[in-house]
Amino acid sequence: MNPSLILGIETSCDDTCAALVTEQGEVRSNVVASQGLIHEKYGGVVPEIASRRHLELLDAVMADALEGAGATLEDVDRIAVTRGPGLIGALLVGVAEAKALAAARGLPLTPVDHLHGHVVAGTLGPDAVEAPYLCLVASGGHTFIARVEEPSSYTVLGSTLDDAAGEAFDKGARILGLGYPGGPAIQKAAENGDPEAFDFPRSYPGELDFSFSGLKTSLLYKVRDGAGPVEDLAASYQRAIVDALATRLGQAARREGIDRLAIGGGVAANAELRERLEGAAIPPFELCTDNAAMIAGAARFLPAVEYPGYLDLDASARIHA
């Protein structure tokens, strides 16, 4: 008998995603249609454009995910969809389509917290991390450290008080004229730069919180004062972000007495961060950035709402759990 299949749908920001994952955590397909280039010229995600593109792309992305898994709708036992947080108009495209498809086929539906998806992305695949563990999630919209006792939930130990780490990369890249998205742009420029050329501030507010807004301001002043070259600025700026993230995760591990670590979110793709956190469970790149496999993956640990209990399900821009 075939294992139960979960169809995951994720449209919270600018990537249109669908995936098929088994109840055992095997990723059968994981399709992402990135809108990055469309938003590049605006220097950030334009919500209305993102929402329009989701609607244009979602059917094809879902069809690709089914085909990639060698499955049809007949094989799908449950649908999982990102309910939030994210751009409300973008989220609603995925939620509306997921509800309609699930209802018409009489399938159960599991609404998933996007951040929960990032936190448990490391539990997918052959090298799955086992709870309890700590997870650093760093993306364009979020930066926090979570403690995972059981993968069905998580506790936030500390989070950013202002900009997210990915946002710091984006804003830094814009200041340096390096383009969007900022993470890959800064990493590339930094390859030929000296990470110790400039001493950017590291901020450690509270016990385990983050702050990146002072860093961005410091970069702005240096550029305004004519500092350079841009490679050194990029390398030093990246070092400051990675330092803050790695230091905080280390402090959290000591305080909590947990040495199993994982990372998630788009910033987990950063090479310097991966190097610094050697030993941590770092999911493959495609499970770190926004994707639907992590949504279907999180749904494995969550209750399903049986048809028709979810017909009036709404998306939420700012939910937590």
Partner: peptide, 19 residues
């Protein structure tokens, strides 16, 4: 309303896909 129209169209597509 843009958001509302998208909900209508996404719902129609989801229903249509089912069978």
């Amino acid at each position: 309303s843009f958001t509302s129209l998208r909900i209508g169209v996404a719902t129609a597509r989801g229903l249509a896909q089912a069978y």
